[in-house]
Design a binder for these strands. Structure first.
Lengths: 221, 221
DNA sequence: TAGATTGTTAATCGATTAACAATC
DNA sequence: TAGATTGTTAATCGATTAACAATC
């Protein structure tokens, strides 16, 4: 079984290699890829080995091989379809920003509760009222859901998605959602990250001050 | 030293407890908080112990205590200020969506290269041309930077931020950024998460089909 | 050959979880 | 007391990394 972290790295390898090559260079060494992916060379070799990609001690790995084999591993035969619930500022931004970037994933439908926002085409994506979610998802073979509704209604939307057959969810609402075990969920809690970065930023600031301040005393007890 | 994962959980505990109490209830047991935070009860007890929060075997932990002590730990004496670079769809969404939600963090300034977008007030936030970044950051004591520019210019913006004294960065551009070791960086690579969820969604779909298909053969070698 | 990298194993590291005496 | 939870340690688990013989 391949771990989530490994999948994340593999996705990064492909993007990195698509950016550097193959027009600039044909081969790459594990330590070079490791540096670009912010990881360890042995880890890169292990990941590639896992995918059945072999390199040679003299020339390293063929970039075209890696891209091809990773694509064979990650992408299915058909394109995958995603849906989005909540056409607010954030929903619109995701439609505009990410719709183009993953060639094998298509944002096929967007949903909102507000009739003023539905039955239009927004950034190339058709919009529908939420109560047609299940119908559209089944008809169009959509397997991915993106949640950009407010925190209060996020769990309800997630439940609707899982009962409609959605298998993977990305949640931008600042609530931890409960989903059945067979559904893959990625909780992108921007507020949490903001507070986390704020904490470490302050720590970094305080390191430069003398030891005896409120914070360091507190942490010492 | 407190690990990043622990900080993430602590941030979640506070938000969860602010939602449930203290108007509804005054005390909570570790296993109850653990269930809401999607983690282990022993982990909750260890995290709270780390912050010096004690509970009693009879009544559990006092919710007001936890919220207060976590706030004392996470928040500084003064509010922290954040800046945002790149007033596109995503930047605007973040201004609109997250500006209000963290009471101790204030989005104090937004920056863009395009003069048509600057010297305005957007969702209560003043906008400036990028070349005034360093000046404004120093003048207003801003320590956090949010990057919502396209991938091509993200590293350049990150460099500008670190040389201006920014100590924590949230990066939404789909590029891994290099920053000095004293800068805390959180890379929110939405495209990566999209591809990751797509991979697991497809896996989950294929589990229901008979074993002998292209994908499972590939994974077996 | 000499020098570097690959493929792979073993060691290390850190985080999670099980377990239990002490406590209410 | 009996039953449940806390505070804390030890065991487990998994991921990362160091190391090295085989290879080019």
């Amino acid at each position: 079984m391949i771990s989530e972290k490994t999948i994340e790295r593999i996705i990064r390898y492909r993007r990195i290699l698509k950016e550097v090559g193959p027009e600039h260079r044909t081969h790459i060494f594990s330590h070079q890829l490791a540096e670009m992916a912010h990881c360890n060379a042995a880890q890169v070799r292990r990941d590639l080995m896992l995918l059945g990609i072999a390199g040679s001690p003299a020339k390293g790995y063929l970039i075209g091989d890696i891209i091809g084999d990773i694509s064979g591993f990650l992408d299915g035969e058909a394109e995958q379809r995603a849906s989005l619930c909540g056409i607010g500022n954030l929903g619109r931004a995701i439609l505009a920003y990410f719709v183009k970037s993953s060639p094998n994933i298509k944002l096929a439908a967007a949903f909102d509760r507000n009739p003023a926002k539905t039955n239009q085409t927004l950034f190339g994506c058709r919009t529908y009222p939420v109560d047609r979610f299940s119908e559209i998802v089944k008809k169009r073979g959509i397997s991915i859901g993106i949640i950009t509704v407010p925190a209060e209604s996020a769990q309800q939307i997630a439940d609707m998605m899982t009962t409609s057959g959605i298998k993977g969810i990305i949640n931008f609402a600042p609530t931890l959602l409960k989903v059945p075990s067979w559904v893959c969920i990625e909780q992108l809690d921007v507020n949490m990250y903001l507070e986390k970065v704020a904490y470490f930023a302050r720590q970094s600031n305080e390191k430069q001050r003398p030891m005896q301040n409120k914070r360091s005393i507190r942490r010492m007890r």
